[in-house]
Design a protein around this nucleic acid. Structure first.
Lengths: 257, 257
DNA sequence: TGCATCAACTTGTTCCAACAAGTTGAGCAA
DNA sequence: TTGCTCAACTTGTTGGAACAAGTTGATGCA
C-alpha cells in the first residue's frame, strides 16, 4: 500500500494542502527541518519532495527565506486583432494594453544586423545565415520581466525601407512606415509552442525552475512574400494568448473588455 | 572566476555538448559514474547537474538504461480553420490530420455528467458547480499519448440536444447535430496558456519532468450564448498550434501543405 | 536614537555510504 | 537452439554529515 517513495509522499501531501487551500498562494511552507520531523524523513528526502513541487511550478524557494506557494496572475494578450494601418504598431499595442490594465510598461530596445537562424530563415524564405535586421525588445510590466521580442526583417526589405536598420524607434510604427514604402502586410501566420526556458531566457525573464515559456512566432506577409518574422517569448506563468475566430460581435456586446 | 557551483558546471558542459551537436538527439549520455570521474565530483553532484537538464527538458533518464538526449518531433495543429457545417467535426479533424501525416490515430472516449469547474462555468456563464455534460477524449498518435480533450456543454443546451448526454459518438459530428437542433456555432474564443503538468496530466500524457503542457481553451458561441467550452491539454514537446490571420491565400499557393 | 554586530534561523552545495530496482548480455542447462 | 539464471551494469531512494551563504531580528554599543 505504501509503494510510493517517501519523497513523493511528501510532495503529494504538500500538493494536496496547496490545492486544498490550506496553503494559499503567497504563504510560506514549513522549513525543511520542520517537514523532516513531520514526515520522519531525512532533510535530503524532504528536499527531493520539495524540488518536485518547485519543478511543477507550484512553489518557489529562496535561500535564507524558505519556500513559498507561487501566486499566479495572468495577463491576457489579444493576438487575433489584425494589425493594419488603422491599428497602432506592435510596441504601441503593448504599451496601450499594459497601461489600460493599470500597470506600468517599460521596455528596452536595440537593433542589430544578424545572420538569420535556421527557423527564421525558413519562414522568411531566405538562406539560413544570410543577413537580416533584428529589432529586439525586452519588455517589463511593473518592472517585472514579461517578454522578449525579436523581429527579423529580410535584407531585400531593408533595401526598400532603410530606416528598419537604424537604431531607435520608428515613431509612426513599422507597419505604417512599411506601408508608406509600398509594403503592406495582408496577413499573418502564427505558431504557438511551449518549452522550458534556456538559461539565457531564464535570465532575461527572471523565471526560476518550473516555469515554461510561451513561444509565439508570427510571420507577416505582403502578398506572397514573407516580410517579417517575430519571435516572442513570454513568461508562461504570467501570460495567456487569446484569439477570436468567427463572429463574436454579439458576445462582445454582452461582455465588454 | 569559478563562482558557479560544480553541479551547474556539469550541467553547462553537457548542455554545450548537446547544443553543439556532440551529443545528438537520441544518443546516450555517459553514465553517472563516468561523469563523476570526468568532472571529479561525487555521484550526488553529477546527479544534481543531470536533474537540471532533465527539468529543462533536454534529456530524459530511465532506470537501468541511463540518460538520453531528448529528440523533438513536433506535430502541427491548425487551429484557425473555422469549424462549421462544411467542416468535419473536431474528432474527425484530428483523425484526418493524423492520418494525412502518415501516423496512426487512436482515441478513447467517454461521457459524464459533471459539475462545472469554476473556469468553465465562468466561460459558459452558468453557476459554478452546476451540472454540465462532459465529453472527454484521450488521444494518441502511433500509441503515444498526445492530448486530452474535455468539452463541457451547459445543461440548457443538453435539454435541446439530448444526444449530447448519451455515451458514444455522434456520427454526424456534434457541430452538425447541434445545427440540426437550431444551434449554430458562429464563432470561437480561444485562450492558450502553458504550465507544468499536474501529476494526473503527467500520467495521462506520459510526460516526464521538464515537459510543459500546452493548454487550449476554446469557448464556442451561438449568437451571444456560449454553448460549449473545450479544454485541450497537449504535450508541449510534441505540438505546435498554428493560426492564420488575414489573407494568406497568395502564400498558401506557394507553400501548399 | 541610530547603527553595527552577531546569533539563529533559513536554503544551497558537496561529499559519503548503502541498498533497491530496472536492463542487458553472457553463459549455462535442457 | 531455446530458454533460464545471474552477474554486471544502469539509475532510484534514503540516510547521514558538514559547511557555505542569504535573511532577520535581537542585542548592545556609540
Amino acid at each position: 500500500m505504501n509503494k510510493q517513495p517517501k519523497y513523493r509522499q511528501v510532495a503529494d501531501a504538500l500538493r494536496r494542502e496547496i490545492d486544498g487551500g490550506a496553503l494559499p498562494p503567497g504563504s510560506r511552507l514549513p522549513s525543511e527541518s520542520e517537514l523532516s520531523a513531520r514526515f520522519d524523513a531525512s532533510r535530503n528526502t524532504v528536499r527531493s519532495g520539495l524540488s518536485l513541487l518547485v519543478s511543477e511550478g507550484l512553489i518557489t524557494s529562496s535561500q535564507g527565506l524558505g519556500y513559498e506557494v507561487r501566486s499566479h496572475e495572468v495577463f491576457e494578450l489579444n493576438a487575433s486583432q489584425f494589425e493594419n494601418l488603422n491599428f497602432p504598431q506592435n510596441g504601441d499595442a503593448y504599451s496601450t494594453d499594459v497601461t489600460n490594465a493599470g500597470r506600468r510598461p517599460h521596455q528596452t530596445f536595440r537593433v542589430e544586423m544578424k545572420p538569420a537562424p535556421e527557423d527564421v530563415a525558413e519562414r522568411l524564405t531566405v538562406e539560413a545565415g544570410s543577413t537580416t535586421v533584428l529589432r529586439f525588445c525586452h519588455r517589463f510590466v511593473d518592472d517585472v520581466p514579461w517578454s522578449t521580442q525579436a523581429t527579423h526583417y529580410p535584407a531585400w526589405l531593408v533595401e526598400q525601407a532603410p530606416r528598419l536598420a537604424e537604431p531607435g524607434d520608428i515613431a509612426e510604427g513599422t507597419t505604417r512606415y512599411l506601408a508608406a514604402h509600398g509594403i503592406e502586410q495582408v496577413g499573418y501566420f502564427d505558431e504557438i509552442s511551449t518549452r522550458m526556458p534556456t538559461p539565457d531566457e531564464a535570465r532575461l525573464l527572471e523565471v526560476g525552475a518550473g516555469v515554461p515559456v510561451l513561444l509565439w512566432m508570427r510571420t507577416g506577409y505582403s502578398g506572397d512574400r514573407p516580410i517579417r518574422c517575430t519571435i516572442t517569448t513570454f513568461r508562461g506563468d504570467l501570460n495567456r494568448m487569446n484569439y477570436e475566430i468567427g463572429d463574436l460581435s454579439a458576445r462582445s456586446e454582452n461582455e465588454p473588455q
